[in-house]
Structure formats: structure tokens, C-alpha cells
């Protein structure tokens, strides 16, 4: 059955859907204290690069980090759901509070949610490994909207992928939320905050956050798999083996995610710096 599934897996397009349904508060937006002036034509290279990355992803056969349906025993599946739920609940509370304080916060969450969905199922070929994998996008999401809300947008994205895109699974949803939406988000946010407090420039801090959030996501996936599947063998040995197996693909991809994270932050700083007021150790400039 598995082999059939693998064989029938064909080319997929890199574009996916992320839906974060909030009405556009255009009228409310106009009440904000001014839209930043358009940047100095800095968007063309970014657009070009994103186009190239999309083109590269087009012929890739399939997916990446999400743990597929049925791999985790039910006890472990339940445990990871239990771990994920408080983070998602906290994120939802955070959304209500912060959108009352900041008029443009809901559109930002909508944009970040769509982006996380698109990024997290875009297979990128890694030439050094001959395999495909995807960035998670939760590092930049956590910087922009906070780790709590990143768990929320990641859980929405992962649910849609599990239900309709044969990507991940319903029984493994809790584990996938924990690795991508909790571990990836908190590490990204933590690294960015710490790096800024240590005096690192924005670009470097975002770059580090992107890399480490990606690697943390895959390290957590390794931990989840090793914990559930090591059986009578050594947990540490299995964890190390799985982690090592991820390395050829995720090492370069993490670096790509670092650039993505830093590039997005640079773009926002040049186009609309007031969006970064809620960023840790941020400010508008």
C-alpha cells in the first residue's frame, strides 16, 4: 500500500493555500498613523528570487517533514495533541488581545498564515542530497506575530494539508504542530530576541532565527519519531540516526530559510517599518 502511494505520487505544484479568514479592515487601516513610503525599488530582486525558487520547486515529486498518517502509535499521537493544545489556545487568546490593540494586526496574521501554508508545503530540491524538502516559515512568522500565534497559523496550515493534500496526517497532527508550530516558532523567536539583545544587527538576528527555527523543527521531528519508534533499542541512537539522515537536506535548506527570514524582514523594514513595532526588541527602525 505504501509503495503504491509512493509510486502514484506525481509532480506537484509548489503553490498551496493558506486561509486565514479575516475581513480586510481597510477603513481601520486608514486610521493608522500613516503608511510607510514605498521603498527604493528593493523588491525586484526579491521577486525574481522567489520566482526562481518557485520554478525550481515545480517538478519536485513530493513533500517533506510532516509525519505521515499512522506512523505514530495512538498513545504518542494523543500525547503530542495534549502538548500542542495549550500553545494553540494561548495563541488564540493572544490574537484577540493584540488585534484589539493594533488595527493592522489581523491582516498581518492573515498574510503570515497564508505564507506559512505556502512555504510549508513547497518542496525545494536540494542538489547536494538529491532529495526535496521544505522550509517551515515559522521562524519569520514568530518574529512578526509572536510564537503563540505562529502555533495557531501552523495548526491551520497543517490541518488543511492533512485533510486535503495528503500531506501529514490527522493522527499525527499534534506531533506536527509541536515540531513546526511550537518548537520552530519558539526557537526562532527566542534566537531573534536573544540575538537582538546581544546587539546583533537585524539582518544577522533574522538570519540566525531562520536557520535555527528550521533545524529545531526537524530535530523535534526526529525526537518525536525516535521516542515513539525506538522500541527496545536505544532512544539516543535512533534519535541521532534520524537527525543525521535529515542533515544532507536540511543543512542547506536551513541556510535558505535563514536568507528568506532575513530578506522578508529587510523588505518590511524598507516598506512599512511600523509593522515591526510589535517585534521583540523592535521599534519602527
Amino acid at each position: 500500500m505504501i509503495d503504491d502511494r509512493i509510486i502514484t505520487r506525481t509532480t506537484v505544484t509548489p503553490a498551496k493555500a493558506g486561509v486565514q479568514g479575516n475581513r480586510a479592515p481597510l477603513s481601520r487601516l486608514s486610521r493608522t498613523d500613516g503608511i510607510a513610503a514605498v521603498g527604493k525599488g528593493g523588491t525586484a530582486p526579491l521577486f525574481f528570487l522567489s520566482l526562481v525558487v518557485s520554478l525550481c520547486a515545480l517538478p519536485a515529486p513530493a513533500f517533506a517533514m510532516h509525519i505521515s498518517e499512522g506512523i505514530l502509535p495512538i498513545s504518542w499521537a494523543v500525547l503530542w495533541y495534549a502538548v500542542a493544545l495549550p500553545f494553540v489556545a494561548w495563541g488564540l487568546r493572544d490574537l484577540r488581545r493584540r488585534s484589539e490593540e493594533t488595527p493592522w494586526f489581523k491582516p498581518l496574521v492573515g498574510l503570515v498564515g497564508a505564507a506559512v501554508f505556502l512555504i510549508s508545503c513547497m518542496p525545494i530540491p536540494v542538489p547536494s542530497a538529491g532529495t526535496c524538502s521544505h522550509p517551515s516559515g515559522t521562524g519569520i512568522a514568530a518574529i512578526l506575530i509572536g510564537p503563540g500565534l505562529t502555533a495557531v497559523v501552523a495548526s491551520i496550515a497543517l490541518t488543511l494539508q492533512a485533510l486535503f493534500l495528503a500531506h501529514g496526517g490527522i493522527t499525527t497532527l499534534g506531533a506536527n504542530i509541536v515540531s513546526m508550530g511550537v518548537a520552530g516558532a519558539w526557537v526562532g523567536w527566542g534566537v531573534f530576541t536573544a540575538a537582538r539583545r546581544l546587539g546583533l544587527p537585524w539582518f544577522a538576528a533574522a538570519f540566525l532565527a531562520g536557520i535555527l527555527s528550521d533545524w529545531a523543527t526537524y530535530a523535534t521531528t526526529s525526537l518525536e519519531l525516535a521516542a515513539a519508534l525506538h522500541g527496545d533499542g536505544s532512544f539516543t541512537a535512533m534519535f541521532s540516526l534520524i537527525l543525521l539522515a535529515f542533515v544532507p537536506t536540511q543543512l542547506p535548506l536551513g541556510i535558505l530559510e535563514g536568507f528568506l527570514c532575513a530578506g522578508v524582514l529587510k523588505f518590511i523594514r524598507s516598506r512599512r517599518p511600523e509593522l515591526l513595532r510589535t517585534v521583540p526588541t523592535g521599534g519602527a527602525a
Binding site: 515529486p61 517533514m65 505521515s68 506512523i71 538529491g130 532529495t131 526535496c132 519519531l225 540516526l241
Partner: peptide, 14 residues
């Protein structure tokens, strides 16, 4: 070539 790491790593170990 170019299979996802879910196949080459996760499903293999599982």
C-alpha cells in the same frame, strides 16, 4: 531522485 525527506527519512525509519 528528488523524493521528499518524508519518504527518504521518516517513512524509511517508520
Amino acid at each position: 531522485s528528488w523524493s521528499g525527506v518524508d519518504e527518504t527519512v521518516i517513512e524509511k525509519f517508520a
